[in-house]
Amino acid sequence: MAEVTEEKMKWGMAIDLDVCTGCNACVTACAMENNIPFTGEDESGYGRGLHWIRIQRYWHGDYPEIKPDYSPMLCQQCGNAPCEPVCPVFAAVHSEEEQINLQVYNRCIGTRYCANNCPYLSRVFNWFDYEIPEPMAYYLNPSVTVRRRGVMEKCTFCVQRIHAGQEQAKAEGRPVQDGDIVPACAQACPTDAIIFGDLSDPQSRVSQMARSQRSFRQLEELGTEPRVIYLKGGGQYGG
């Protein structure tokens, strides 16, 4: 399309663990936004739960003085992603345009190599077609594919919202501004612990957080170049 060709955005996310309360609002919001079915207790017990974002809980300290510590874990949208080269059908591909990892559902044949190679365990597999009873079908988001059995899925950084934000900005004839695009988890976060934005813009909120002294990346030593930046100082929630 012969329209405005804007600079490529490098989407990133910053998660401030010092203000995360582990309330799971992001998990719920993600499930509603992305048509993630509820698999139930039994299936989760088998390790077949479907979550694109989950809250990992760690305990700190010795017995009477133990404190919880929460860490939301989602697809890190690695710049050098271990999941991509192992896919035999190129269903896990890197988006040159949005600089994120994609999962192309209609290509996926369900070998699960990608999930086995993901150090963050952030990919989940549809072991079954999970039934959605009739009135519940109205909650489905029409902008997101309802995945079928045998397909791998993962966090997309709410790419449908990225596209909607870009479309909105283009329709109004202006560049995408910081804060235009908010994924479901960041929108739902009551403590504003999750910040999403453009890492290539040094003035964006997420870039400023990424430069913080408290910032670190998960399993940085593996060289995956994650796009999700965690912030953690000395203190923690409740402590």
């Binding site: 988006s95 192309v104 209609n106 997309t156 449908q160």
Partner: peptide, 18 residues
């Protein structure tokens, strides 16, 4: 057939499949 500088975007999987 569109401009080559736009083809990266126009051939990106994420543009239609998500």
């Amino acid at each position: 057939t569109m401009a080559p500088e736009n083809f990266t975007r126009l051939s990106d999987c994420s543009i239609c499949h998500y």
